[in-house]
Design a protein around this nucleic acid. Structure first.
Length: 945
RNA sequence: GCCCGGGUGGCGGAAUGGCAGACGCGGAUGGCUCAAAACCAUCUGUCCGAAAGGGCAUGCGGGUUCGAAUCCCGCCCCGGGCACCA
């Protein structure tokens, strides 16, 4: 029997309402944000007097699995905020595109032969349907994908801007490379390290000059160590390499070796990337992560002479004050000096621990390098690991005391940081201590540890000892003194180093942006002219790179683009007549598109520029003195705290330097949303198993009959624990899903998914609906009577609290306060008749959170227009304060009584009222008041004995 | 290993130096009903107590303060990142 009232708020009704409103919004173009000019400029005059607001989400990768319930957390958050701010009077720009180049589509293509574009477009279609169903207020004209030809054409253009630039340290900004060429021609010295020949510019031939210029560019070719997997024919990410040095796919050996790669000179920007952090509205934790990642440290370079002339070892140290305690040295196994320095034979009486049993140093080095090449960097830095290494059979001279100290290679020293070599001071460094202990090396303390310090390194401050002229100085003083000494005697200099390395920009893959670069007969790179853009990704019949015998370390990769024979060679006229050139075969990394997509959203159809300057200035330009400009609110996962956010800041600054942008930072305010976590399960081997097929018996978890371990982590394919929004929408509707995700906690907090708790917010919508509409007829059951004073006060307190929650992105509190208001109405008006003067603000406050339901209620209350542009209710400050307040009276900080007094009672009167209260007098009997703390409107605390 | 974040009832959370546990889920009891569901009402941190009332309680240990979930120090556990996953 269908007992249910015809107009009750059910999942079916919610679904109908939602689809109808989504169609209506789309037809009306409700969420289209007009630009100040250009093709998207229609209707700007209507919003010209509003402040602008640019809200941005980190865009999704269109994975084949579609969206999971974790994705929309941020999207709903920005949607609620954007809708609220629009009602609060702003011109809001909000849209969403796709970060669509990437490995999964390519790997699928390798396996199936399906073109990644087909897979990607199908995935985008699925995801955009999922997103549309959430009712997000996006401007549908702006949602570009990084794989669109008209998008990556500009990614290539920006690459060329970077390629055709150099960093002028004097001017502290990037400048066009042509200006460098002009300066070099008129006598400017090349930057250090860019002219290995040492000859004057006039004495260089054309090719040598081009090499010098190329070495200045912000995008340049460089030998960089990578994980080379000949069996797969490609370079792998550290995460694709297993602990024992095999590829995760295929289980082939992986070798760490240098390879010629494109790099981006992000290190030229370190100081600006650091300094400008101060001006950004980002959380302190993210700023700290970026600072630590950049890793600026002040220290000294110290030169250690060896018996080989012209082959002294340069080290960077942050502790030059400990130089007297340097009892040995370590080079990274890949360090170029290793081959130069290594002795031909072991010295007489060499310690057997130093040789690893090899008969000559070179033999030991070769074996050790092989072993080190199989380890990941994370592994190599793990402090817990046992220290390994081999002796080079030779010594270096400690410049301060002339001691001959042995030189080793060891994998705990990395080529990528500092100079790739260290002076080892076991007494003041844990890793050096462990190594020295294992190899029987001398340990000399040069900082006095405190009394009773154990048999371990001492990293703290204390007076210098065993250090000649430094003795007695504290660490900071000793650093200054030794630096002066090093400079004076020509053994070193004060320097600053950074952990940040230049950005490795090449990928030996198919599904990415082709480089707009060709090589000439001298094998030097040349820019493809802007008029030849885009360089289209060619068709190939096989998406995999050429593979090699699994232990062929030395062969060079042949990326998939090499299979496009007709494409690889191209005839161009680069100003010296038509010639045949060979194209760059690698593609750009996935990060490239995400470095500038926020700019393209502003002007997605522009064919003449990546963005129109006027449009960019309107949406992202600096607003006040000291403001650097950028997106007004950027929301995304904290996993992008360093890489994406640093790369995007870097590109933005280059474009700013070259005069293409008015803003010098891309993201003015950043909020990291939390994760929705879900249980994931690993089997005995540590591999993830499909979470939906795991069963629970008596608190234990089983997969396919075998016990598995439960952990909580990010939802997604890698943990095999997908939960999709589609099921939730089918069961409750999109507004309920939106409310649930916003209700489970503040936006920046992670939370576990709990399907059975979703019903709570569904009931809230149902109760609001019932308080406003008759469930039998669907007609309003509100009255035009005035609300009573308590209801009016409750309404205004709710408005203030809801606004506060919206602005601080703590929507859970806004929802709780709306629930309280609605509960109050349910009790006060059990038979209907909620005053319209309360019902309407309630609907408007609900609108950013549950827009479909709110629109429907608003329409049924008799409004023809969408409430999207209706002003958000404002609280009357006079109604926020009550006439009387209840004050807790504490004894020694514990509440013992309560008194009710007039609000705003001054301190002395409040104290008198508390002391005069009969209950308090009784409690005070026999006690002495030592002190009284009075906080008006808050509490009274008697400190008694 | 290094860097960042988090830990409050059975569960999600509220309170950011001033009444710990708002709001919701779950649970209990009652109403309505022939009955069930739905709905409505009341209760629901824990221990002692018939009650009144009181003790304990915000991962663990210490500290600052009249007063600490909140600030400081040390530890434990969980999550994120570590440069070619996105």
């Amino acid at each position: 029997m269908p007992e249910e009232p015809a107009h009750r708020y059910t999942a079916a009704l919610a679904g109908q309402i939602e689809l109808a409103w989504q169609d209506r919004w789309q037809q009306a173009g409700t969420f289209r944000a007009p630009n100040p000019s250009g093709p998207l400029g229609d209707g700007f005059d209507k919003v010209a007097d509003r402040p602008k607001l640019y809200v941005l989400d980190m865009f999704p990768y269109p994975s084949g699995a579609g969206l999971h319930v974790g994705h929309p957390l941020g999207y709903i958050g920005t949607d609620v905020y954007g809708r609220y701010m629009r009602m609060a009077g702003h011109n809001v720009l909000h849209t969403l595109g796709y970060d669509a180049f990437g490995l999964p589509a390519e790997q699928y293509a390798v396996q199936t032969g399906t073109h990644p574009r087909i897979t990607t477009e199908a995935n985008i279609a699925i995801i955009s349907a999922q997103l549309r169903r959430l009712g997000l207020a996006h401007d549908d004209r702006r949602g570009v994908a990084t794989t669109d030809v008209e998008f990556y054409r500009w990614t290539q253009w920006i690459f060329l801007q970077i390629f055709n630039s150099w960093y002028d340290v004097e001017a502290d900004k990037a400048r066009p490379i042509a200006e460098l060429e002009a300066a070099l021609a008129s006598g400017r010295e090349p930057d250090s390290g860019t002219n290995p020949s040492g000859l004057a510019w006039a004495d260089l031939d054309d090719v040598e000059r081009r090499r010098v210029v190329d070495a200045h560019r912000l995008a340049y070719l460089h030998e960089a160590p990578v994980n080379w997997c000949p069996g797969l024919g490609t370079v792998l990410a550290n995460e694709e390499v297993t602990a024992d040095g095999k590829s995760e796919r295929g289980n082939f050996p992986v070798f760490r070796r240098p390879m010629k790669q494109w790099k981006m000179r992000i290190t030229a920007y370190v100081d600006r990337l650091l300094d400008d952090l101060d001006k950004l509205d980002w959380s302190d934790s993210i700023k700290l992560m970026q600072r630590n990642w950049i890793g600026r440290s002040e220290g000294a370079r110290v030169t250690f002479a060896t018996v080989t002339p012209d082959a002294s070892i340069e080290v960077f140290t942050t502790r030059p004050d400990t130089l007297f305690g340097a009892t040995y040295m370590v080079l990274a196994p890949e360090h170029p000096l290793v081959d130069v320095l290594a002795a031909d034979a072991w010295p007489e009486g060499v310690d057997s621990r130093w040789t690893s049993g090899a008969s000559t140093p070179r033999e030991a080095i070769e074996a050790y390098r092989k072993q080190a090449a199989r380890k990941s960097e994370i592994d190599r830095q793990a402090e817990s690991r046992e220290k390994t290494g081999v002796f080079l059979g030779m010594h270096a001279t400690n410049p301060v005391n002339g001691d001959q100290i042995p030189v080793f290679i060891a994998d705990y020293v990395l080529m990528g940081y500092g100079t790739g070599a260290i002076m080892a001071v076991p007494a003041q460094d844990d890793r050096d201590w462990d190594f020295a202990t294992a190899f029987g090396l001398a340990i000399v303390r040069t900082v006095q540890p405190p009394e009773g310090w154990g048999d371990v390194a001492f990293l703290g401050d204390g007076p210098a000892i065993n250090s000649s002229f430094l003795d007695g100085l504290a660490v900071a003083e000793a650093k200054v003194a030794i630096n002066d000494w090093l400079v004076e005697h020509g053994h070193g200099s004060r320097t600053i180093t950074y952990k940040l390395r230049d950005w490795l920009f090449s990928r030996q893959r198919y599904w990415g942006e082709p480089f707009p670069i060709v090589y000439d007969e001298d094998d030097l790179p040349r820019a493809v002219p802007d008029s030849e853009l885009p360089v289209l990704l060619p068709e190939v019949d096989d998406y995999s790179p050429r593979t090699f015998p699994i232990d062929d370390v030395t062969s060079d990769p042949e990326p998939p683009l090499g299979r496009a024979d007709e494409w690889v060679e191209v005839t161009l006229d680069l100003g010296d007549g038509p010639k045949v050139y060979r194209r760059e075969l690698s593609t750009m990394p996935n990060w490239a598109g995400s470095c500038w997509y926020e700019l393209r959203y502003l002007d997605p159809t522009n064919e003449n520029a990546f963005v129109d300057p006027e449009v960019e200035r309107y949406w992202m330009g600096p607003q006040l003195d000291g403001d650097l400009g950028g997106v007004d609110l950027y929301v995304g996962g904290v996993e992008h705290a360093v890489l994406h956010l640093l790369y995007a800041r870097f590109w933005h600054k280059v474009l700013f330097d070259l005069g293409h942008l008015s803003s010098s930072e891309p993201f003015r305010r950043l909020v990291n949303q939390g994760y929705i976590q879900a249980p994931a399960y690993t089997d005995e081997r540590g591999f993830y198993v499909e979470a939906s097929e795991v069963t629970e018996r008596a608190g234990e978890f089983f997969f396919d009959g075998q016990p598995v371990n439960r952990e909580f982590g990010k939802i997604g394919k890698s943990l095999k624990n997908m939960i999709t929004p589609d099921d939730m929408i089918a069961e409750y509707g999109a507004d309920t899903l939106r409310l649930y995700e916003m209700f489970t906690g503040p936006l920046d907090q992670s939370r576990p998914w709990e399907t059975k708790a979703v019903v709570g917010v569904f009931r809230l919508l149902q109760r609001i609906w019932r308080n406003i509409l008759d469930e039998e007829t669907g007609q309003p059951r509100v009255s035009n009577d005035d609300a009573d004073e308590e209801t009016v006060r409750t309404l205004h307190k709710t408005i203030a609290a809801v606004r506060d929650g919206m602005e601080s992105l703590r929507f859970n509190v806004s929802i709780a306060r709306l629930t309280e208001l609605n509960n109050h109405l349910t009790v006060r008006y059990p038979n209907g008749g909620v005053p319209r003067s309360v019902a309407e603000p309630l609907v408007l406050m609900l609108a950013p959170l549950a827009p479909h339901t709110a629109e429907e209620l608003w329409a049924r209350l008799g409004h023809d227009e969408s409430l999207t542009w209706t002003p958000f209710p404002e609280a009357d400050p006079a109604l926020l304060v009550d006439d009387t307040v209840e004050i807790p009276v504490q004894f020694n900080g514990k509440v013992r009584a309560r008194i009710t007094v007039a609000a705003g009672l001054p301190k002395d009167e409040l104290e008198a009222a508390a002391a005069g209260d009969p209950g308090v007098i009784e409690l005070l009997d026999g006690k002495t008041i030592r002190k009284t703390i009075v906080v008006p409107d808050k509490l009274v605390n008697f400190v008694v004995a």
